[in-house]
Design a protein around this nucleic acid. Sequence first.
DNA 1: AGTAGCACTTAGCAGGGCCCAG
DNA 2: CTGGGCCCTGCTAAGTGCTACT
Length: 732
Amino acid sequence: MRCFLLFFFFFLGSSMHVTRPPAHHCGTDHKDFSDKKHRDKDKLKHKDGSSDKPRDKDKHKDKEKRKDEKKSFEGKIKKENGFASPPRIKSEPDGDDFYHSPKSLKRERDDDDSDYKPKKIKVENDREDKKAKRKMVDDEDIKPKKKTKDKKGAVADGKKKAKKEPEEKWKWWEEERYTDGVKWKFLEHKGPVFAPPYDPLPSNVKFYYDGKHMKLSPNAEEVATFFAKMLDHDYTTKDIFRKNFFKDWRKEMTSEEKGKITDLNKCNFSEMSDYFKAQSEARKAMSKEEKQKIKEENERLLQEYGFCIMDNHRERIANFRIEPPGLFRGRGDHPKMGMLKRRIRPEDIIINCSKDSKHPAPPPGTKWKELRHDNKVTWLVSWTENIQGSIKYIMLNPSSRIKGEKDWQKYETARRLKKCVDRLRNQYRDDWKSKEMKIRQRAVALYFIDKLALRAGNEKEEGETADTVGCCSLRVEHINLYPEKDGQEYVVEFDFLGKDSIRYYNKVPVEKRVFKNLQLFMENKQPEDDLFDRLNTSILNKHLQELMDGLTAKVFRTYNASITLQQQLKELTTSDDNVPAKILSYNRANRAVAILCNHQRAPPKTFEKSMQNLQTKIDAKRDQLSDAKRELKSAKADAKVRRDEKTKKAVETKKKAVQRIEEQLMKLEVQATDREENKQIALGTSKLNYLDPRISVAWCKKWGIPVEKIYNKTQREKFAWAIDMADDDFEF
DNA sequence: AGTAGCACTTAGCAGGGCCCAG
DNA sequence: CTGGGCCCTGCTAAGTGCTACT
């Protein structure tokens, strides 16, 4: 199984396995998705055990028409984030966040909170509570919390004190956890920060329709500016985007405007666009002082709204700003691209906090949609977004206890899988032979999830999102079978769009039984039929749950990612390598995981250039080295002849110089290799989400590498628990 | 078993700040 | 001291998985 990963690894640098579709490749050669076939949602009933064959050739799905010519994958399209208006500083201290003016305490809270007493906030960690450091040994799962009572170290009038930076970080991982779904006992926060209100365009910035100037109503104008800001992007040329935008825009127009503006092609937004470009230039050109002022204002906002108090500790909130309105841009071929993402008002907001906390006040003259006190959830604020109707949340930062505990637990589950994975693998291999179709499909799907680290693949509502799949939702058209290819037997070729419409392309030799099963699953099916027609994630996860407590499909990804890192580190680290070389080894191990998990990125726009620059540097260094070597040689010769102290010393100096330059050269070369190999691979995602940080910490400790070389500040905050608890002998 | 809703994790990208070489 | 490029951070979309209900 694992040799497969090595196979992956050896391809690094030369030919990538997993290729990325052309990044921007829209418009012209892109077929549109207008004609749909009919798809019958009903799955045929199958009597368990009655037959091995799926008999659903008649199953037709109405789905988006796919390319008939080889798949032409629409790559990821650059996302536009730039809706946010420039940070503005108002002269009045309370100006910009009028929404949060502390006056108007129109709170709708219970009377009994009027005598609210600030909770004691723990500011620093007491030494005395250094109860037996809770080391995670193999199976030991995190113990539930009995009682949270924090009697020690609390500072009177914690409210004030809590604003100060704690001198010592709180080690929540040395405390007991809550049981049965309670997430916190006390929660207080200031609510969200709303997007700044729309700032109308100056009158000299004009909009033209059909060549004629037209003054737009504020609402229509605002939506027009969203479009104008995106004009440089390819997707404003896409039909679906334009169609969706225009439809939503018209909803914002006055009836008079609606009557006039009937064709988007006759709209001229260029003055608006130029205006925003100029604004952005002006922002860049601001003086130091102005920039400083903005920075300070942001800091003030952060201090006020960016933290909450949860169970006596001041914790950082991840996203305390409400998403500003703008045009929705999904990823890949999203049917809703271009739709208007509406502005969120206080009336849309649900606040979650403790009953006995000081409730956040809605902006003057407004009300929250709801104020609730649910300590079985972790979010502080939520609202329903208008594009998909899904709920958005404000939650805590990854450095918080509540996120950290969960993260830790995730890796403990993966470590438990490690202990029974052999059993499980034998089980699914057996199941390949089952007489029940459903079981065979389940077993083959599980094999893919395990071997290839595929995602589970939940069903998605058609037409609501881009057409992407995971393991359980693979369709016949996503794989090709080759009894023999490139000298290997039983090769399966995968080619599909996964999460975020990232293409997964891979050719994998599989076991004969798997191959035969796949042929069976594909018999009498149309390309657009489900490969695993008797399977979904719910069935799969139910099965996994029976095999191991807490086991779900995604645990395999975590497990395989982490175990791969550990193995690769073991294999690649050479003890007499210097620090940069060791770090290269780490990055390569990390990269093996990123490839396994198919974590891709668009090659940086400046890649070629910066690579060239680096090469120039390397060449220069090489010249410098040969010069230095020549000098050393002549110094040696000189010393041989003269045999005096002075020349001897000169030789030593030259030697040192050569050494230093060699080291520098090597460092540059390592850098070049690393960067080249990393061209279209993103290491961050696996590092942040799949790799047990204790593996990395242990590796750092073992080889004397400072953790700072592996984790930046944010990452160190997120992984504080691991940095604190992992010793050099940690085994995943 | 299927489905909808909810909560929470995982994902890539853009923009800006910061750092370092020249 | 300055300009270019790299890295970090914020942003928010897009997944997974659980639960309640039918």
